[in-house]
Amino acid sequence: MNSRRTMGRSFRSLVENDLDIMPLMNLFVALIPMLLISAVFLNVTVIDMDSPPEGLSDNQDAGADKPLHLAVTIRDDFFVIEGNRLKKLVIDRHEEDPETALAAALGSVVASHPDNRDVMIISESQTRYTDIIAVMDITRAAGLPSVSLLGAN
């Protein structure tokens, strides 16, 4: 009888003891700084660049079998869309929402030339990088994923 009571008390005292979470705490304290250092809070992606197409210099005589060589030129005041068999289109950057106008113009070019996937972006020497990326986004959204960069000079 006595021994049973002793056993019951020792069991109760065993159960009532707090869980020893200090080793777990130590593990967490070591893991969290390590993971914080290697954590990715910014989603960095890339835009793949292509080389400009060959034979750009002899695109003056635009024959029916000539490649389109679609180009978007970023000037300080204008966006210019041009290419073989295309009527030159100028979009004023001071107008309201020139990006939408550029997207619409590129959309119509893509609709009339569905095989073409390439576009050249021609920039002036002082064109800001962020403007170039913005135009790249517009061309990609319009269905021209293959982009190459060229200097205007």
């Binding site: 990715v40 910014l42 960095v44 992606t45 890339v46 835009i47 793949d48 990088y129 962020t130 990326i133 913005a134 790249m136 986004d137 990609r140 959204a141």
Partner: peptide, 20 residues
């Protein structure tokens, strides 16, 4: 994973291509 270099303010884009 590409970690941005401190001091470089990367532009935002709609591109979803993962870096290699």
């Amino acid at each position: 994973v590409i970690t941005p270099v401190p001091g470089v303010d990367l532009p935002e884009s709609s591109s979803e291509t993962k870096p290699r």
